[in-house]
Design a protein around this nucleic acid. Structure first.
Lengths: 216, 216, 216, 216
DNA sequence: AATGAATGAGGATTCATTCAT
DNA sequence: TATGAATGAATCCTCATTCAT
């Protein structure tokens, strides 16, 4: 990813902004946030360090913008997919959600940052904007969820928040760094191994089942 | 917490070790791992920085040992409590587990570190020892879980891992730093607010309900 | 101060040049030179950063030109005023000079830069031009000074140079940044507080008295 | 100046502290404060950058401490010298003061920093401590000045403050960087050349004369 | 002539870790 | 065993200046 031209037009600048966001998200991978340096991102972008700061005033702003983008896009995609699905069952629902998340590696990498580092270093305005976006998308998507599953009122939001929590926790358990993966490969440690998509799907299925049962 | 004496005997050394672990765990709180410095821990212990390195060879070893301690103790306590409980229902189970976790702040603070930073910086031996401990406790506790709840075989382990995942995710969502808490206090952002214990309890209840054998 | 039009004619360019100089001088205030950025000056001018470089090839050139303007204008004004005054006494002289400087904040802000930063970063040509201007004005003004005060030959120049030195030193002592001003407000630190104009006037009065021919 | 040993004893630490201060002051010379880097000072000390921060928490603290040291020592030395002198005349006084300052290059280099950068970047506590020291020394020295010269009450402090101002201004005019010195060497610019000690001495002589004259 | 995006050298500061005492 | 002074790599960010448009 090399960008040499000057982004003079507004649309070029937006494009560059997004390009940076994508590079940043991909640079993170499963690494620690602190290990990703602005210098590295800049280099991968083919830009100078200073240029990054033309687009984002701090490292945190850069990453929260990346998360914002990914998150909004995921909510939209999920809502659309569920809408196409129509009335459905817990198993299918779990599958669809798990698959949509498993295919969005960068989102899943970014998500744990939110509470871990980003929220500790952003200003009120940024936080407010982000949280509002989150709330809007969440509520909108929750309505769709309640449309395709027979849940109690308010359980759409609840289910999505639980999904969020589950994703953060599961991802960390299912995708260890190579050194740990090697250790986990030993037969006696087999019970500690998890497949992200499969486990998320199963968990959601069970969870939805449990949330529906209450109904009667 | 000030320790000035020399720990000459083996038992003194162990006591000091644990004292350090406790201080470390409490020092973390809801802060970023990177923000907790070895200097700070040393000072709180009333020890010199160098002394910490007599007991733990790196910062990561120190924190993983702290987690190990907390985790083992929790598994044991939970197993015991469930055993006392005997055959039970999803709701009670959820309550018991949630309460036992909510009362162990330090464990809950430490848990997210495991995959986020600790596993990225420890050597194979430490990892192996930790994972083995985890497996042992997990399997033992899972047996108890399957004893008190009518689950399918293997679902005890599964439920505990899901609980682990849930705890990591939920905690981060339910205990934001003050600046974010303030933002979340706005009425329109109310849906994003969560109470850790209550939400964990409810989620586990629903999850267990969904996992239980249909008792036909 | 916004300038949007293109400066096509030579006179327009000169006008713009001076407009920039004025903005620059005013931007400095009592701040550190390093804290005044070219970006800030450009913005205050309503110009782009690059445009500044069409008029001045470095930041230092810009500021030395600003100083040059202020200084020349001050010398001229002072000479004129003294001429109007005619033969006078030390006290009146001190008053007049002090008042004329106190009313030229930007000059007084700019003056300490000369030796502190500007002279460290300008090329020989600029230095030569500046120094020649200074010499010319200085000598001319000194002649007037010797006309209104009974000084020994050569003491006009000497007095003006001493005034220059005094202004630089006094200004820094009499106009501290707010945080320091607050500290100085304490009663026990009262002896360290100075009023620029008053102190300059008194000092010059005393100095002239000491330099005057003993009128035997 | 290379220091390799560890300063374990309090007195060693103090010695090292002062060694650093001296290196810092000497590193400044007639250069811009911003051009002196912590890295350079560290290297000249034969220390690591981090070590500097064990002794001074910021660059500003380092330089203000250096100034404090020099200033206090100068006031003491001057007071002592004047005391030895006993009742004296303006000319001798000017000579003594000028010589004592001319022999303290580092003090004279440091002095202009006080108002230019240091006071813009220090916290209230440091400022207060510094100003109190300054006041104490100033008042004490002023008493001696009034003892050796027939001045009005309060004129001792006034004279010393004027001296301070004069020093800052004169030094900058009398010791230009080489490039400027070369320019000033031209015959027509001769009036702009000053010798620090001589000019300071003469100015003080005249100033004191003027301050005494008022008397009658 | 004017723009402003891009540059990139540079600098202060932090902190886990080492090691002389 | 304990200390804490010393280390030095590492990182974020700034800003004067350039240059493609």
């Amino acid at each position: 990813m090399v960008m040499r031209l000057r982004a003079r037009k507004e649309e070029d600048k937006l494009a560059r902004r997004e390009a940076i966001l994508e590079v940043a998200a991909r640079s993170l991978g499963r690494r620690q946030y602190a290990r990703v340096t602005m210098a590295e991102i800049a280099e991968r972008c083919g830009l100078a360090k200073g240029t990054l700061y033309l687009y984002f005033s701090t490292k945190e702003e850069l990453f929260i913008a990346a998360l914002e983008l990914e998150l909004a896009s995921w909510f939209d995609a999920l809502a659309e997919e569920l809408l196409k699905l129509g009335r459905t069952d817990p198993h299918t629902f779990g599958d669809v959600v798990a698959k949509s998340l498993a295919s969005r590696e960068t989102l899943v990498d970014l998500l744990p940052l939110l509470h871990t580092v980003l929220e500790q270093n952003i200003d009120t305005d940024t936080a407010l904007r982000f949280k509002r976006m989150l709330r809007d998308k969440l509520v909108a998507c929750a309505a769709v969820v309640e449309h395709v599953l027979p849940l109690h009122g308010g359980d759409g939001v609840r289910l999505l928040l639980r999904t969020h929590a589950m994703v953060v926790g599961l991802r960390q358990m299912s995708d260890p760094p190579p050194a740990i993966a090697e250790v986990l490969a030993r037969p006696e440690l087999h019970p500690l191994q998890l497949d992200f998509e499969r486990e998320l799907s199963d968990t959601l299925t069970d969870l939805v089942r449990g949330m529906m049962k209450t109904e009667e």
